[in-house]
């Protein structure tokens, strides 16, 4: 009889944030898709269970039959993560999330991002910290987008955020993970989940983030603006799973400049004499 060898971790490897369990470690945004059909298909292919949404003014007196995002992605099926994209101050971000909580019937898990500059969309960490302090006091569960500064990450954890989400590179840039060393420091020093948010361009970027030991990856543009968003969503799902398994499996030690053959040295045919 063949012995069975489990390739799955021998424990439940759920992603846990704010005391809720998720089987997927890929979180996706819902922006930039061609239409709601494509949004829904890509999100299904990604396997994501937590999806970000934005809060915006509704059209007044325009097409009342305009489809609504929440009809396509019902809160009964997904954990919706309202964001504060486009907010440049703590006050604007807090205001947006209070409206989001009312809109989603008291839902408290949110993504806080306070931007500092429209060209780079770099986070304003001073305003981010200010907003986080108030939101945590108001019982929001704050997943916070921030720079890859380990000290800021620590401060946000101490404030009581439920996840730290440093950028890999600029939002929507697709430049990948520019500073894995900073991410590693943040991962090593943080007790709550750390997710790479922003900058992932293709599947290998997501796998690298997970191999570093990130708890998850949040992305939007890399999927939505791929030539085939649905196939890219599937690729990202696999990359996050592959990266996670590689992290759990424990990679071999790197041996710089020292080759080590994989095939036996014994029994090599001798060189033929001429």
């Amino acid at each position: 009889m063949q012995p069975t060898i489990s390739i799955k971790a021998d424990f439940m490897d759920d992603f846990i944030v704010a005391d809720k369990h998720y089987s997927s470690r890929l979180l996706v945004g819902t922006g930039k898709y061609k239409d709601f059909n494509e949004t829904r298909a890509a999100i299904e292919a990604s396997g994501a269970q937590i999806i970000t949404i934005a809060i915006r003014r509704t059209n007044i007196g325009q097409n009342p039959n305009e489809p609504n995002l929440l009809d396509v992605l019902p809160p009964t099926q997904y954990t919706l993560l309202p964001n504060t994209a486009g907010c440049y101050s703590a006050d604007e971000a807090i205001r947006t999330l209070r409206l989001a909580r009312e809109l989603l019937n008291g839902h408290s898990l949110v993504k806080l991002e306070v931007l500092g500059d429209p060209k780079t969309l770099f986070p304003n960490v001073v305003e981010t910290i200010k907003a986080a302090e108030i939101l945590v006091k108001e019982n929001f569960q704050v997943m916070v987008y921030t720079s890859d500064d380990p000290i800021v990450a620590k401060q946000l954890e101490e404030i009581g955020c439920v996840a730290i989400m440093p950028l890999a590179s600029l939002i929507g840039s697709g430049m990948g993970i520019l500073n894995p060393w900073n991410l590693q420091i943040i991962i090593d020093n943080t007790k709550i989940p750390v997710l790479v948010d922003a900058g992932v361009g293709t599947a290998s970027d997501a796998a690298i983030a997970m191999e570093l030991g990130c708890d998850g990856v949040l992305m939007n543009t890399a999927i939505a603006t791929a030539q085939n968003p649905i196939m890219m969503a599937s690729a990202m799902r696999k990359a996050v799973e592959a990266g996670r398994e590689a992290y759990l499996a424990g990679r071999m030690a790197k041996k710089p400049y020292s080759a080590n053959p994989s095939s036996p040295l014994e029994g090599i045919l001798p060189a033929q004499s001429k």
């Binding site: 934005a54 809060i55 509704t58 929440l70 009312e102």
Partner: peptide
């Protein structure tokens, strides 16, 4: 939402009405 029926608009009110839209 529970107060929509009770609250009456006053002259000069500033209202914001928001919905969820796609975003990252």
């Amino acid at each position: 939402r529970s107060q929509f029926s009770e609250q009456t608009l006053s002259d000069g009110d500033q209202l914001e009405i928001v919905v969820a839209v796609g975003g990252g």
